Amino acid sequence: GNAVQEIMIPASKAGLVIGKGGETIKQLQERAGVKMVMIQDGPQNTGADKPLRITGDPYKVQQAKEMVLELIRD
């Protein structure tokens, strides 16, 4: 079955996860074999953390989460 996890991405790092024209998030999805969606909560909310929703095989979702956390670590 499918697992769904959401991680909060600091607004300052959201661009890093998505990448230029969505390149990075696309590569992450391909590498991890999961679906990732950045939940954009309207323009008034630009400074707030953005939830990144990861959907897929539970094991792969976990892997994907680690990859993203690695990416946004300072």
Rank of each mutant, 00 (worst) to 15 (best):
G1I: 15
G1F: 11
G1H: 04
G1C: 05
G1A: 08
G1Y: 08
N2E: 15
N2L: 15
A3D: 14
V4H: 14
V4R: 09
V4G: 05
Q5G: 10
Q5W: 14
Q5F: 09
Q5M: 15
Q5N: 07
Q5A: 13
E6C: 03
E6G: 03
E6R: 05
E6L: 04
I7S: 00
I7N: 00
M8P: 07
M8A: 05
M8Y: 05
M8Q: 11
M8R: 08
M8K: 09
M8F: 06
I9W: 00
I9P: 00
I9S: 00
I9V: 14
I9T: 01
P10T: 02
P10S: 02
P10W: 00
A11F: 05
A11E: 06
A11H: 05
S12G: 13
S12C: 05
S12E: 12
S12I: 11
S12A: 14
S12F: 04
K13Y: 07
K13G: 03
K13H: 11
K13D: 05
K13Q: 10
K13V: 07
K13A: 07
K13N: 05
A14S: 10
A14F: 12
A14W: 10
A14M: 14
A14Y: 10
A14H: 15
A14N: 09
A14I: 15
G15H: 12
G15T: 07
G15V: 11
G15K: 14
G15M: 15
G15R: 10
G15I: 11
L16H: 05
L16R: 07
L16T: 09
V17I: 09
V17D: 02
V17K: 01
V17N: 01
I18W: 08
G19W: 02
G19D: 04
G19T: 02
G19C: 02
G19K: 02
G19I: 00
G19Y: 01
K20V: 11
K20S: 10
K20F: 08
K20D: 15
K20T: 10
K20Y: 11
K20R: 08
K20G: 06
G21D: 11
G21L: 06
G21T: 09
G22M: 06
G22D: 07
G22V: 03
G22I: 02
G22E: 09
G22K: 05
G22W: 06
E23M: 10
E23G: 14
E23S: 15
T24F: 06
T24Y: 06
T24D: 04
T24H: 11
T24C: 09
I25C: 03
I25W: 04
I25F: 04
I25S: 02
K26S: 07
K26W: 04
K26H: 04
K26Q: 11
K26T: 08
K26I: 14
K26G: 06
Q27S: 12
Q27L: 07
Q27D: 13
Q27F: 10
Q27N: 12
Q27A: 09
Q27E: 13
L28T: 03
L28G: 00
L28K: 01
L28R: 01
L28H: 02
Q29T: 03
Q29H: 02
Q29E: 11
Q29N: 03
Q29S: 11
Q29M: 10
E30N: 07
E30A: 10
R31T: 10
R31F: 05
A32H: 14
A32R: 02
A32N: 14
A32P: 01
G33L: 03
G33D: 07
G33S: 05
G33A: 04
G33C: 05
G33Q: 09
V34T: 03
V34G: 01
V34P: 00
V34E: 01
V34I: 02
K35N: 14
K35W: 03
K35V: 05
K35G: 08
M36S: 02
M36N: 01
M36G: 01
M36Q: 01
M36C: 03
V37F: 08
V37P: 01
V37R: 12
V37M: 08
M38R: 02
M38A: 04
M38S: 04
I39H: 07
I39C: 09
I39Q: 11
I39N: 14
I39L: 13
I39D: 06
Q40R: 09
Q40S: 10
Q40N: 07
Q40W: 07
Q40L: 08
Q40T: 09
Q40E: 08
Q40A: 09
D41Y: 05
D41E: 14
D41K: 13
D41I: 06
D41S: 10
D41G: 12
D41W: 04
D41N: 15
G42M: 07
G42F: 08
G42D: 08
G42C: 10
P43I: 12
P43M: 12
P43Q: 09
P43S: 15
P43E: 12
Q44F: 07
Q44E: 09
Q44W: 07
Q44K: 15
Q44I: 10
Q44C: 07
Q44L: 09
Q44Y: 13
N45I: 11
N45G: 13
N45A: 12
T46I: 09
T46E: 11
T46V: 13
T46G: 11
T46A: 08
T46F: 07
T46P: 12
G47A: 12
G47N: 10
G47E: 10
G47V: 09
G47R: 07
G47S: 13
G47C: 09
A48V: 12
A48M: 14
A48N: 07
A48T: 14
A48C: 15
A48K: 13
A48I: 13
D49G: 07
D49V: 08
D49A: 11
D49L: 09
D49H: 12
K50M: 10
K50F: 05
K50H: 10
K50S: 08
K50W: 09
K50I: 08
P51K: 11
P51R: 13
P51Y: 09
P51V: 13
P51S: 11
P51E: 12
P51Q: 06
P51M: 14
L52T: 00
L52P: 00
L52C: 04
L52D: 01
L52H: 00
R53H: 10
R53A: 05
I54Q: 00
I54V: 05
I54S: 02
T55L: 10
T55D: 06
G56M: 00
G56Q: 00
G56D: 01
G56L: 00
D57P: 12
D57N: 07
D57T: 11
D57K: 10
D57E: 14
P58Q: 08
P58F: 07
P58M: 12
P58E: 13
Y59T: 15
Y59K: 15
Y59N: 15
Y59A: 14
K60S: 10
K60L: 08
K60C: 13
K60H: 12
K60G: 07
K60N: 14
V61P: 01
V61K: 00
V61R: 01
V61N: 01
Q63C: 14
Q63I: 11
Q63A: 12
Q63D: 06
A64S: 04
A64V: 03
A64Q: 01
K65M: 08
K65L: 04
K65V: 10
K65R: 12
K65C: 06
K65A: 09
K65S: 06
K65E: 06
E66V: 08
E66R: 07
E66I: 04
E66T: 11
M67A: 11
M67Y: 07
M67R: 07
V68E: 02
V68F: 01
V68P: 02
V68L: 05
V68H: 02
L69K: 11
L69V: 07
L69G: 12
L69Q: 13
L69S: 12
L69R: 14
E70C: 06
E70S: 06
E70W: 03
E70M: 05
E70Y: 04
E70F: 03
E70P: 03
L71H: 06
L71K: 13
L71E: 07
L71R: 07
L71T: 08
I72A: 04
I72M: 12
I72K: 02
I72F: 05
R73L: 06
D74V: 05
D74E: 09
D74G: 13
D74Q: 09
D74R: 07
